[in-house]
Simulated assay, not measured.
Amino acid sequence: MARHDQTPTQTGLLSSSLLLGVLAPAIYLHDWLLANLLDRRRYAQYATATLATLLAAGALLHFLNHMANIHIVDREGHTQTVAYRYGLAVGNVLLGLLLATIAHYVRRGIVSHFQMQQLRALQLETELSLLKAQVNQHFLFNTLNNLYGLSLAAPEQMPEALLQLAGLMRYQLDSSRLSTVTVGTEAEYLANYIGLEKLRLRDNTTVEFTTDLPRPEQPLAPLLLLPLVENCFKHAIGPGGPNTIRIELTQTDTGLTLRTGNSIPPHFRATPSGLGLPTLRARLAQYYPGNRHRLDIKASDTFYAATLQLML
């Protein structure tokens, strides 16, 4: 209760206004102490400065309440002691600082979370750029050699092969500027890639590529399918015996499934590429998180199969 000429409502509003007026600079100062002392592990200085801030803010609030003629009385109508009123003011300031500190770290945690997401997205885009550069270097070198051989052995196939190469290079150039492409353009890119890879295959290698895409206009993150297709041609080529590569891309109203399978030549030992599958898994987690994607890989000594399912 308060002993003065104002109504309880007016007293409450005045008391709250004084408390907020004292808390605002105290919270601002405490935020500075958090950033410049506590975060730098200067714990003793932080504790001393925070205690001084708390006591000074409590004294100021107590003084302002006294000047505004706001006095706390007990049930019998007796005015509480100065020490009690000062302790109550310090307690109110302490509660305000605690709530502000919690909000400070919650806000910092949220900001840090979004910053980490942005950094992770930037890292993935950098890895994607490296993946594109890696594909460009070794694939373009091999393709040019294959085109040279094709020009000597079967020059009538050169126009189609050059168109495939131009389409592939155009797609990589365009996709580098886009966050999403379409299922249809990604499938066309894979067809051009497979067609050019087939130029270097021997007669003992069979390649099957089938698609069923009723909704080719659906959006898709670029170059998600390439690593699994690329692995088929890295791992399935052997000098002796039959080699088999099967690639199947199917689509429903809400999903896309890529199935790849390839035989493994005897005595084959895979060498880690460093960017292919790890980058694919990271990009899947970024663009199709949780149950929006599923990647299953089954490998034996003679066959390697991968199934990628996406919820579009």
Results as ranks from 00 to 15, higher is better:
1 M>A: 15
3 R>T: 12
15 S>N: 15
16 S>M: 10
18 L>F: 00
24 A>S: 11
32 W>I: 12
37 L>G: 06
39 D>S: 13
42 R>P: 03
48 T>C: 12
50 T>H: 12
50 T>Y: 05
52 A>V: 15
52 A>Q: 07
58 G>T: 03
60 L>I: 09
62 H>V: 05
64 L>V: 01
69 N>F: 11
73 V>N: 11
74 D>G: 00
77 G>E: 02
84 Y>R: 00
85 R>N: 04
88 L>W: 12
90 V>I: 11
93 V>W: 02
95 L>V: 14
103 A>D: 10
103 A>P: 04
122 L>I: 10
126 T>F: 07
129 S>D: 14
134 Q>E: 14
140 L>N: 09
141 F>H: 13
142 N>Q: 13
153 A>F: 10
159 P>W: 10
162 L>S: 03
164 Q>H: 13
165 L>M: 09
172 Q>V: 08
185 T>C: 10
196 L>M: 05
199 L>S: 01
215 R>I: 13
216 P>L: 01
218 Q>C: 06
218 Q>G: 03
219 P>A: 10
223 L>P: 02
225 L>W: 05
229 V>I: 05
236 A>H: 03
237 I>F: 08
241 G>V: 00
242 P>A: 15
243 N>H: 06
247 I>R: 01
250 T>I: 14
255 G>Q: 03
255 G>R: 00
267 H>Y: 10
269 R>P: 05
280 L>E: 04
280 L>V: 08
286 Q>N: 07
300 S>Y: 07
300 S>Q: 04
302 T>K: 09
303 F>T: 14
305 A>S: 10
307 T>D: 05
308 L>K: 01
311 M>P: 06
